[in-house]
Each structure stands twice: as C-alpha cells, then as structure tokens.
C-alpha cells in the first residue's frame, strides 16, 4: 500500500490546489493521516474510493475531535551586548498568540477489495463558533450516515449534504454539544456521599453545610 506521502502527491496531482497535508503521528503506531481542505473533500473522497490502486470502499470510523483555542507563548531571546564589556546578556521577549480552535473530523478508511488500510483523512472546520460546516461524505460511504449524525449531535459540526442530519444519541430538543471541551453540565446535582474534586466543589455550592458523611455517624448501622 502507498505511504501517506505518496497518496498526498497523487491527490494533489489529481486535485491541484485542494490542500492536502500529511499530519505526522509521533506514536509508535505510525498511523499518519492526511488533512484535506473541505472545499473539494467529496470529490477527493470519491476518488479515494474509486482509484484502482487504493479502492478505499470501507469507511470504518468517523470521529469528531474538539481542539479548543490555545494560547501559545513564544519566548525569543535576543543577545544584547553588555556595555560594560562583560558577557552578553540575553533579553527575552515573550509573544503571546492565540492559536484558533477548530473542530476536526477524522475518517478511517480501509479497503475490503484490496484488503489494506488504514488511510486516515482529516477535515477541519474554520473555527468553533460560526464556521462549522463540512461536506458530508455519506453520499460516498453510507457508513458515515449514523456516525456523522453522532458528530453533529455531540460536537456541533454541520454536514452539508447529509440525507438526514438530526440528533441521534441525545434527544431532539437538547441544546449544546456534550463532547466539546467547554461543555457545562446542567445543574442537576444529586448528593453523593464520596464526592471528590469537581463533584465536591459542586456539592459545596449546593449544600453549604456539608452533610456529615463520616464513618462515626453511621457506626453500628449495618446495611
């Protein structure tokens, strides 16, 4: 089977300007992926499915990933010569920049005809707020139907061209998208006797005088 670099080169040859970048995977699994621009993703997917050397006819897994905004602080050190003639001091300059967040959809493709795989492709949205539309690959691989609905339900990515895009795991009237990193759970707390960390913080808000959940209180009370 071809390496991701070879696939990318052929892809760019067939779809110039499509924007395909190999995303290296540092883990020992060495499963590198190809990030594709959403513009011509459906044509590229059809090509991946029908190309005689690849024949990726089986889309095994569609995953949504939430990459929130990250603040990256870069430190640049510029050596400044010491006027007194001593060793040069390094003046450090810190620049902050915000790496914009996005929602990402990862497709794991295998070939049942040629029995190889996986070829992993990634589609990224513009940001996490208003540019959240990606082309749906359900017309290419029917297995994406339910899985894209799940990514829509849990992450909020809108798939253009999906035959039936509605929530699948949460109920239809549910608001918000639970798998996002900034999801806030509804305030429906129930008392937990062995609360820890975040749950304990919630308990303290709800029950200002915490109930005595210590051993001494229940001495002698056998279950």
């Amino acid at each position: 089977m071809e390496t991701p670099e070879q696939i990318r080169d052929r892809l760019l040859a067939n779809f110039p300007g499509a924007g395909a970048v190999v995303v290296a995977n540092p883990a020992p699994s060495a499963q590198h992926s190809i990030a594709i621009g959403p513009g011509r993703a459906r044509e590229i997917a059809t090509w991946l499915r029908d190309d005689p050397a690849l024949r990726l006819d089986y889309c095994s897994n569609v995953t949504g990933v939430d990459w929130p905004e990250k603040e990256i602080i870069e430190t640049v050190g510029t050596p400044a010569p010491d006027p007194a003639g001593g060793p040069a001091k390094t003046a450090e300059q810190k620049t902050k920049r915000i790496q914009p967040g996005c929602l990402e959809v990862v497709y794991h493709l295998y070939s049942m005809a040629l029995r190889h795989g996986p070829v992993i492709i990634r589609l990224r949205t513009g940001n996490r707020t208003d540019q959240i539309t990606l082309p749906s690959l359900t017309p290419v691989w029917r297995s994406c139907e339910f899985q894209e609905r799940e990514v829509f339900d849990l992450f909020g990515v809108v798939f253009a061209g999906h035959p039936d895009l509605r929530r699948i795991l949460m109920w239809d009237e549910f608001k918000d998208h639970p798998m996002r990193k900034d999801y806030v759970e509804p305030d429906d707390y129930e008392w937990e006797p062995t609360a820890h960390d975040k749950v304990l913080a919630k308990a303290k808000k709800h029950y200002p005088a915490e109930p005595a959940a210590t051993g001494e209180a229940t001495e002698g009370a056998k279950p």
Partner: peptide
C-alpha cells in the same frame, strides 16, 4: 437494603 443512600455507604467499621 430498602434505603438507597445511607446503608449503601460502608464505613471502615463495616
């Protein structure tokens, strides 16, 4: 147990 909170919390004596 008939009560689902306190009797199901086992302390070190139990």
């Amino acid at each position: 147990t008939p009560d689902r909170f306190q009797p199901l919390l086992l302390d070190r004596n139990q």
